[in-house]
Design a protein around this nucleic acid. Structure first.
Lengths: 190, 190
DNA sequence: GGATGTGAAGTCGTTCACAGCT
DNA sequence: AGCTGTGAACGACTTCACATCC
């Protein structure tokens, strides 16, 4: 909407776009404060800014990628991250020399791939706050333990296994097959 | 549990593993039928079978992948799909000759990459029911339209744009940055 | 005896409807 | 006049508690 030059938006318009109820939109926003103007609506620019602040997106999030396989390589060159203030500032693998050539070849730009043992040191140096786990399932919990030890509090886990971390740490999973299961269920019932 | 040789499981055990309430587990299962035995629990093997049937996983799901970039290539060699009865039986791109070498090189096995224009024909031939969209965002809706035309009713969309399809079709999105936004929010509030 | 299946109770989230501002 | 913010009504989901059955 901002790019489209729209200045003001109503809860009803937002509700349409999101396929939800207008009261829902207002309640949800009101939970965090008063962002609208009665009789007018919400200023697009202000609202965007406020939502980003609420979500914690008004800063650059520095991430480490662990496991430079097919998926890891894909994420290294994933362009949408940059637009959204997410930045992979370090990449790790258990066998860095092997993967360096491969990654460089694919990206056409230098990508540093470090040995996994250096995570803690590098995490502190580069102020890393999020770890992306793209290792084989068998290695995922071990890597998570290293991330916890390095005090990297957020983990995005792509390995299809449940990962356990202490309180204060957060794991979000991206399980492709689980999402497919969901799709399969919906397709199976008309 | 089945692989671990466990024969029977109680709702309490399942609840522990899933971090939910035991009554929840029973209610959810009971919604679909009676699978347990009072005073005993659920037979692991039977329950697994029943859940698969409920979710529609008691068959092979044949998928098409559209867009052979980094992410698409990664999914082509994603091993977890095979274990779960999901099979990519066709791959499409707008420029197949260019990508064939690359894909083959990565996988070490022949992968057919066809021109996008052949989707409809191939979808019918190979009984494709799910499409995976891994194109750039700008192409995603166009590809979705082709999938709809080919009567592929399920779409797993990895392109970071909203996709619109007619009734009867289902789209599930995998938005990496949205999941990261969620993580960022959780990290920002303790 | 012991765990399921399930009404009833409780809790949480959604929607309504309108007072309150601009 | 019009749209937000919000108490109140509503509906949905979760949990309790126990009758039921193996």
């Amino acid at each position: 909407m901002e790019q489209g030059g729209e200045k003001v938006v109503s809860s009803a318009q937002l509700a349409n776009r999101c396929m939800v109820n207008a009261a829902q939109v207002r309640k949800d926003l009101a939970y965090f404060g008063e962002f609208g103007i009665r009789g007018v609506g919400y200023y697009v620019k202000d609202l965007l800014h406020d939502i980003k602040r609420i979500l914690g997106l008004n800063k650059e999030w520095r991430m480490a990628l662990i496991g430079i396989g097919n998926l890891g390589s894909a994420l290294l060159s994933y362009k949408d991250f940059l637009k959204q203030n997410y930045k992979i500032v370090a990449a790790f693998d258990i066998d860095p020399p092997k993967v360096i050539g491969r990654v460089s070849e694919k990206l056409g730009k230098p990508v540093e791939v470090l040995h996994i043992s250096r995570i803690k040191e590098v995490a502190r140096e580069r102020k890393i706050e999020i770890g992306l786990i793209t290792t084989p399932p068998s290695e995922a919990q071990g890597v998570a333990n290293l991330l916890v030890d390095a005090e990297i509090r957020g983990i995005l886990n792509f390995a299809p296994v449940q990962i356990i971390v202490p309180d204060g740490y957060v794991v979000k999973n991206v399980f492709f097959t689980t999402i497919l299961d969901n799709l399969a269920y919906l397709l199976s019932n008309e």
